[in-house]
């Protein structure tokens, strides 16, 4: 599966600032489609970012998060060229793991 997250991670002064955005519709399950039927809920419910085997950020999301969810945070550590691992799951049960480089 194609990557759903675009991650920009910048290391500066011993800290790494991470901005990430997923390509995801975040269907709430409350909206009606063109055929008048409800579109079933389909949204990202958990996102976990780890660096060097240690979890640095976790998010549990609900349908109230905007389409194409954006998350930004900063953690201590991390250096240019190292890798972040992003694990996500959907309410439908799909999961995925992606990696992104720190710049």
């Amino acid at each position: 599966m194609a990557k759903i997250f675009r991650v920009k991670a910048k290391a500066r002064g011993g800290k790494t600032a991470v901005k990430m955005m997923a390509k995801h519709n975040m269907d709430t399950g409350l909206q009606k489609g063109k055929d008048g039927n409800l579109i079933p809920a389909k949204f990202l419910d958990t996102v976990s970012v780890s660096h060097g085997g240690k979890v640095v950020f976790e998010a549990n999301l609900n349908t109230a998060i905007s389409k194409n969810p954006y998350l930004a945070f900063t953690f201590e550590g991390g250096a240019k060229g190292e890798e972040l691992s992003v694990a996500w799951s959907e309410n439908t049960g799909s999961t995925g793991t992606e990696t992104a480089a720190i710049k």
Partner: peptide, 19 residues
Amino acid sequence: AAEFGIPAGTAADVSTRVR
């Protein structure tokens, strides 16, 4: 809308966008 886990070493400064 959302719950964030902040492990030690991560800054308590999180941004997102909500509906």
